[in-house]
């Protein structure tokens, strides 16, 4: 890709960002944010970071976008519960934000040339993991602890969403999306797309070992397919207190933790894998994590329980 394209892309990203901040309509800002995520994905592709681009498109644009849309819909016509911030507050916030941006810009410009890189260090022991994609090796072998904490953060976020519901609904079903019957177009999409989505997610999951892709991107697609089926009324939203659902949510962290502690006696330490079984263990962890991520993402969008639990 050529430099004019990069410049144009940068300009578009900046304009979109400015528009999101200044636009008055809440929902318009959310749509802007989704477009912003997709543009950022293009930026990451331009920087040859395809793994990050896929994650940005799936999580930054897709999942966060849908989450914000739901929030915007739930807030309804609430226009702001307190008085708008005064001029001084807005100026201080603006100056602080501009300061952070300028400092970051200065830091980027001050980077030594060539920039320091851990690429060689990441590639060198990769043979021991049985993986071909250094990003996956970093996420699940060298820095597995970070990935473990990531899934914990996701679960905490889901608990946060759930706790927004009223006490008497705890463990019940999330509210239905619509009151009337779903539109035939939505039902059509929910019938046609999931087979494609499942195949593509499986492909992304499997290819993640050697090429850009992985469990996070795959899980986002699966969660989207599930949500589509829920929105179209083809699959009822699960009770948030259901045993199976809770088991799916903790499956990932539990498997991760179990294999991590097993590393204390069959390998060098916590979250270390024996060389011979590194790849099967990593795939096992990824599969368990995928189950939890799908459940967590889908239920975060579905929202807190708003119906009495059936007993």
């Amino acid at each position: 890709m050529s430099e004019p394209f990069a410049l144009l892309l940068t300009l578009l990203v900046l304009l979109t960002a400015g528009w999101i901040v200044t636009v008055r309509e809440r929902r318009a800002a959310v749509f802007g944010f989704i477009a912003y995520g997709l543009l950022l994905a293009l930026v990451w592709i331009r920087l040859a970071a395809v793994d990050v681009a896929l994650t940005e498109a799936a999580i930054g644009g897709g999942a966060t976008g849908v989450l914000l849309l739901r929030v915007s819909a739930r807030l309804g016509s609430i226009r702001g519960m307190s008085a708008p911030p005064g001029l001084a507050t807005r100026w201080i916030a603006g100056v602080l934000c501009a300061g952070v941006s300028l400092a970051l810009m200065a830091l980027v410009l001050a980077l030594p040339d060539p920039a320091p890189s851990l690429a060689a260090a990441a590639m060198e022991p990769i043979g021991r993991t049985g993986l071909g994609n250094p990003v996956t090796a970093v996420l699940l072998a060298y820095r597995a602890l970070d990935t473990f904490l990531e899934i914990i953060v996701l679960l905490l976020a889901l608990i946060g969403v759930w706790s927004l519901g009223a006490d008497r609904f705890w463990g019940g079903e999330p509210a239905a999306w619509r009151t009337g019957p779903p539109s035939p177009a939505l039902v059509f999409l929910a019938r046609v797309l999931p087979p494609f989505g499942i195949v593509i997610a499986g492909y992304l999951f499997w290819i993640g070992a050697d090429e850009p892709g992985g469990k996070f991107q795959a899980s986002t697609i699966l969660a989207a397919m599930w949500l589509l089926a829920m929105m179209a009324g083809l699959a009822p939203p699960p009770r948030t207190g259901a045993r199976g659902l809770r088991a799916a949510l903790v499956a990932g962290p539990l498997v991760f933790l179990a294999i991590g502690f097993a590393g204390l006696w069959w390998a060098d330490g916590f979250l270390a894998y024996p060389d011979a079984f590194a790849k099967p263990l990593i795939i096992l962890i990824e599969a368990a994590l995928a189950v939890s991520i799908v459940a967590a993402l889908a239920l975060m969008v579905a929202g807190p329980a708003e119906r009495l639990p059936r007993r």
Partner: peptide, 30 residues
Amino acid sequence: VLVQIASAGASQLLAGLAKRQPEETREEAP
């Protein structure tokens, strides 16, 4: 083909929404 399916479906949904909600009240509705 996937873009065809998605854009046709999304257009139907948006058109349905536009039909149900008159122009001026659209922003307030969930």
